[in-house]
Write a protein that binds this DNA or RNA. Structure first.
Lengths: 192, 192
DNA sequence: ATTATCTATAGATCTATAGATAATGC
DNA sequence: ATTATCTATAGATCTATAGATAATGC
């Protein structure tokens, strides 16, 4: 049953990707090691050869989810050089993003779970958040660097809060209103 | 072991209060029925005489947590008639609020959990969110009623997002910065 | 010989129920 | 007689480990 080192590394990769999607969709506690391994087409017992514990996978898969987000944001910003901030807002606050948490922002999907997790996971979230704020700060209009930074941090809060709340009340009119109001108010900063 | 109807109603009350705090602190899945009953000084088995299921308690305790928040906000607004909006911001975005989720906002503590819950819970969250937005809309400056409403919805997203993220990265410098930046940017609306 | 994966299971925990108990309220 | 609570447990699920298996890589 043994596979080559190359294959093993690929398996490890598949586990991290499967976990990234399943954790965002169901929460850290909402999915078990066995189901993640099944999604990666492996058996339960093989898990502990790749990771020290479930929490180890939580930290690693979260890091990857956040790094992917930063890469996506960078690409999005580059494809809209005239108004990168507007492009980020439209992308983040779309109903499509709201309706597919498994492929979306880790902060909006797992912020509460991270808050209840240990130091290692919270540190991973802090290190994943910083680049997103940097990208926002470079895209956002503002007088000084400090002002742009402050606007970027607050905009990040608005984005994550709006998506979180839109999902929490999904199925009611408040859900769409939340995305639209956040979009309108954040975009107002560009029009100033 | 039977108690009077009055005592039974009081027990039910205690269960809902204990659940309200424990769910906010540990998440819907992070605490069990047995621990909630222990916190209410009752035994595990008695639970199902009071509630149809754990999800039933989730919905009821969430409703109460949110109704209490609305009552607190109303009181806070009344005690600061000159600048109710500033009072709400200072209260919500305080380190004290961040550091005690069990007594704080249900949306910032359980938004992700609600998003993964069933329709009944999500509807409860929508019905609990509306009054908070109404209070914000009455406190916030703005040209038209529609503008104030939109600002209130977006401000709610910023508040919840900032607290959620501040908790997710708790223990790093970003945590305080998140509270301060959100406070500064939201308060800017008052100074306009 | 080493090791990636598999099967099987230990041990803990969780929701929910069954049946006993004992105090209330008709 | 009714019923609020209790003890005990069924049945499911979850993390983690033990030991077997078989293919890789020295």
């Amino acid at each position: 049953m043994r596979v080559s080192r190359e294959k093993a590394a690929e398996h490890r990769d598949r586990i991290i990707d499967a976990a990234g999607a399943l954790f965002r969709a169901k929460g850290f506690g909402g999915i078990g090691v066995a189901d993640i391994m099944k999604a990666a087409d492996l058996t339960h017992g093989g898990f502990y050869g790749h990771f020290a514990s479930k929490e180890d996978l939580v930290a690693q898969s979260s890091r990857r989810s956040m790094a992917r987000a930063a890469a996506n944001w960078t690409k999005l910003v580059e494809t809209a050089p005239d108004n990168p901030y507007a492009a980020l807002l439209a992308h983040y606050l779309s109903p499509k993003h709201r309706d597919d948490p498994g492929k979306g922002c880790a902060f909006a999907a797992l912020g509460n779970d991270a808050a209840r997790s240990g130091k290692i996971v919270r540190k991973a979230f802090a290190e994943g958040l910083a680049p997103l704020i940097d990208i926002l700060a470079q895209s956002i209009p503002g007088k000084s660097k400090a002002a742009r930074r402050r606007k970027a941090v607050a905009a990040m809060a608005t984005l994550v809060g709006a998506l979180t709340l839109a999902r929490a009340v999904e199925g009611t009119p408040l859900s769409d209103e939340m995305l639209e109001a956040a979009h309108h108010e954040l975009a107002a900063a560009v029009r100033l």
